[in-house]
Structure formats: structure tokens, C-alpha cells
Amino acid sequence: MTPYTATGRPEVRWPAARRALADRPALTLGGILVLLLAATDAVSPGFVTPHQLSTTLLYAAPLGALAAGQTLAMLTGGIDLSVSATATAAAYLIAGLGARGTAQAVAVALALGLAVGMTNGVGIGVCRVQPLIMTLGMAGVLGGALTLASLTFTNGVPVVPDAVHQLGSGTVLGYLPLDTLVWAPLAIALLAGLARSGLGRAIYAVGDNPLACRLAGIRVWQVLLLTYVLGGVLSAIAGILLVGYTNAADLNLATPYLLQSVAAVVIGGTSILGGSGGYGGTILGALILTVLDSLLTILNVSQAGKQMLYGAIVLGLAWIYARAAPAE
């Protein structure tokens, strides 16, 4: 027997868009991306060039990595509000330790991501704290710690290692951004992992029904722990790519990316309630957001305006997806 629905759902309008998104999200999102590119090209003739597309990929890679962690968290029915704080912290470590050697700086930055993810994972998986609270608190702790750290860093000169700077802003073969070369293998691993690995199955399952997982012998805490650890490391990678691009760390480096990471996931069709969606949609979501950002910049929209528009877009798309879900 199906449980009674708590609210009478209004009749569905926009049946075409609804069905298109429900049945072929990738195709629909791809279509939106192409439309956006065409619109940008119409506003600013000559936008669709290999050079501009390369720049789009370059911008999209850090967001793509950040949104990857967010996707994993949301697939398990959680949310990670510490992704941008983790990325900023990683960026800070790279700049602060850059003088001591690239490898060391990168290793410490990744270790920080691991530690943050581990703490989140223990809180959420073992202590059963709500993901929202845990990661919001973690973001608070990281934010405060960064403010403290920024005071000590002013003594030395922060240097972003050249290799990281190259990775975050350089290209090979003329147009292929180096950070895309970091993002692409990550993306492939995530896509394959979610679809065809035991862990991927477990992540979807935990998001869909944790009790069923327990009764089937899956230790939910292990899945959640690993999910948030992966999220922490992915956020750190995003921070490294980001600081490589900006070539300098500041306290709000990744702050605007928090909503964007959620937006990319929501646009990509992953439900915050967990158990359905995937990283493929998120990739398209990140690309759509990046092209949209270019378009808005060309149209001279202020930061405040962009922020409001992103809020509206997240709301609108989440609405369409909510309607696309079956009425039961």
C-alpha cells in the first residue's frame, strides 16, 4: 500500500518540459547549453570560438570538482555546505606553503580536504548529526580558522607555486585547459563509479532508504563516511584549481561557489532527498552556469544581480524537477 500523500499535488502544467526533463535530462540540459551558447554568441558575436570555449571549460573545472562533492552528498540525501570553505582553506594552504615546495603544499591541501571530509563523515555517519548542521558548523569553524590564519600569513609572502598556477590557468595543444585534464579523469571515474561500482550502488541506496540498507547488511555509516571524505578531497582539488587560476588566495575565494555548487547539482537533476540523479547532469549544470555567467558579464549585470538570478534559477529548476517526479 502506498502511503497517503501529504499534500494534494496541483495538476501538472508544462507537460512537455516536464516529460523531457524526466525522460531525457541529459538531452534537455545539452539543448539548454547549446541555446545559451547561441544566445551569448548573438549578444557578443564571435563568442563561440575555440578560444572562448576553452575559457569556458577552464572556468567550469573548479565548479565541476566542487559540485562533484555536492552531488555525492546530495545523492545520499544530505548536503555539504562546507565545500566552499574547504576549497578556500585548501587554496590558502597552497598559497601559504607554496614557498616550501609544490608537492608539499598540494599534499597538505589534499590532507586538509581529507580531514574535513573525515570529520564531516564521522559527525554525519557515526554520530548521526544532520548533514546540514554538521557541514554548516564545519564551514563556520573553517571560516573562523581562516580568518585567524590570514592574520599570520600577512607576515610571510604567500606564493602560489608556479606549477599550480599553470594547472589552474594554462592550456596544452593550444586550447585544452590543463585543469580540464584534472577534471575529466575525475568526472569519468565518478560517472563510472556511481553507475558500476558497489560503492556507487550503496550511495544511491543510502540516499533512497537508509533503513533498507541496514536490513540488507550495508553499514550506512561507512558509506556516509566515505562519501563525505570523497567530498572533502574533491573540494580541496577544486580549491587548488581555483587558486591556480586566481594566483592569489583571499578569504572569500570560493564563497560564491557554494550556491553555484548546489545550483549545478539541482540543475543537473539530482534530488536533494537522495537516491536519484547522477554526476552527468551536474557536469552539464556546471557548464550551463559558466556560460550563463559569461553571458551576464557581457550584459554588464552586477554581482548582486547575478546572485539574485542564480537564486531564481535554482528555484525555477528545482520546481520543474519536483513537478517531473511522479505524483506518488
Binding site: G311, L315, A322
Partner: peptide
């Protein structure tokens, strides 16, 4: 939230950005 059935977290995160953007504007 009631009319769309979108989870509270998403809606208020989005409206939060709208309010914040408006304040900045």
C-alpha cells in the same frame, strides 16, 4: 515551498541569495 514541493533547504538557500543580492544591490 508548499506550492512547488521543492525541499525547504533548496528554496530558502535560493531566496537567501535573492535577499542577499537585493541587499547588495
Amino acid at each position: 515551498i508548499v506550492a512547488t514541493g521543492v525541499p525547504d533547504i533548496i528554496v530558502t538557500l535560493a531566496t537567501g541569495f535573492v535577499w542577499g543580492g537585493l541587499a547588495l544591490h
